[in-house]
Computed example of a mutant assay.
Amino acid sequence: MALTFPLPLPDTTSMQEIEFTQNTIVGATRSIFTGEQQVQERQGKWWTVRCAIIPKTRDDAEDWVGFFTSLNGPDGSFVLGDQHNAQPRGSAATAPGTPLVFGASQVGDQLAIDGCPNDATNYLKRGDWIQLGLNATARLYRVTEDADTNGSGEVTLEIWPDLRSSPGNNDPVTLTNTAGHFRLSDTFKYRIDREHIYAIEFSATEII
């Protein structure tokens, strides 16, 4: 049976270390006469990650090796999130409500949502993750300011990066076990020591 991408990771508990890099295209020039700078933000914004898997014996490790082999380098894709921060820090961790996109045609670095509990202080906190879309359309965003809901359960989130595309009105907003759509950015390699312990690391780039 042919594989259907993106694939899920073999499991969600094996990540020993994950390093997220925020990539932004910003042009900057400095006057040779005054030293004054001019900065111009460009459209490009995306995540890259470097991950290390917990050392494993052959029975467990070969499942991961087979997973990465099936990707055929950057040809295939997978969904990946911050496994060490799968829950928001805000009150949404215990009382999320049913958050939905509030209004169509939204663009930029803000997202209006509703369906949240009324008058929730710190519903989401700066640094919490949200996800829009699923599988091949999954997009990963980080909240950049603490967010309180109003008396109608509505809130406008400040996010990074800018919205990739305008979500539909009432599209679901995922707050737990969030993930984005990635592909390998380097050749997959792994090591096996004389005790038959596997060391597996990989790097990936968000698909935009």
Rank of each mutant, 00 (worst) to 15 (best):
I207W: 05
E154T: 15
D11F: 03
I18M: 09
V39S: 08
L140N: 05
L111K: 07
A52H: 01
I208L: 13
I53T: 13
Y141V: 12
V143P: 02
V65I: 15
G151H: 00
S185Q: 09
G76S: 11
E41F: 12
S165A: 15
T34Q: 02
R142F: 04
L163T: 08
S14K: 00
W129E: 04
D59M: 05
T57A: 10
I159P: 05
Q87H: 08
D119I: 00
F67W: 06
I208M: 12
C116N: 05
V107D: 04
V107L: 10
Q37W: 06
S152F: 14
D171W: 01
A86T: 07
G27E: 08
Q131N: 02
L175Y: 07
T24L: 09
P10S: 01
Y123L: 02
R30V: 15
I207V: 15
E154H: 05
L175T: 09
F102Y: 14
E62Y: 01
A120W: 10
L7W: 00
A52V: 07
G44V: 15
A52K: 14
P10Y: 02
D63L: 11
G81C: 11
N72S: 13
L100I: 07
R42E: 13
T13K: 14
D75H: 11
T178R: 02
P88V: 04
A147S: 14
S166I: 04
P96E: 03
W46N: 12
K45I: 00
G66C: 02
W160R: 11
P10F: 02
I113T: 02
G115K: 07
T34D: 09
H181T: 11
N135W: 03
I197Q: 13
R58A: 13
E158V: 08
D186N: 15
D63T: 12
G127L: 12
G66A: 15
G115F: 00
W129T: 09
A136N: 10
F68T: 09
I207R: 14
A86M: 10
A93P: 01
I207M: 11
P172Q: 05
I54N: 07
F188K: 11
P10R: 03
L71N: 12
E145R: 10
T121P: 01
R194S: 15
P167D: 05
D75P: 00
P96M: 03
D119R: 13
L175N: 08
R58L: 02
N118F: 04
G133V: 06
Q22C: 00
G115S: 02
I197L: 13
F33I: 15
F20E: 04
R58D: 10
W64K: 01
D128Q: 03
E145W: 03
P55H: 03
F67S: 06
A52E: 13
K56T: 00
L100V: 08
V173N: 03
Q38D: 08
G151N: 12
P10G: 08
G108A: 13
Q43C: 01
E195A: 07
G97N: 10
Q38L: 12
L140I: 11
R58M: 10
D148G: 05
A86P: 07
I113S: 05
G153P: 13
Q110S: 15
D114V: 00
W64S: 10
D193G: 09
I32D: 06
R58E: 12
L7H: 04
T174Y: 04
E201S: 14
N122G: 07
R139S: 09
T29C: 06
Q83M: 13
E17V: 06
P172T: 03
E201C: 06
I54L: 10
N72Q: 14
D171Q: 12
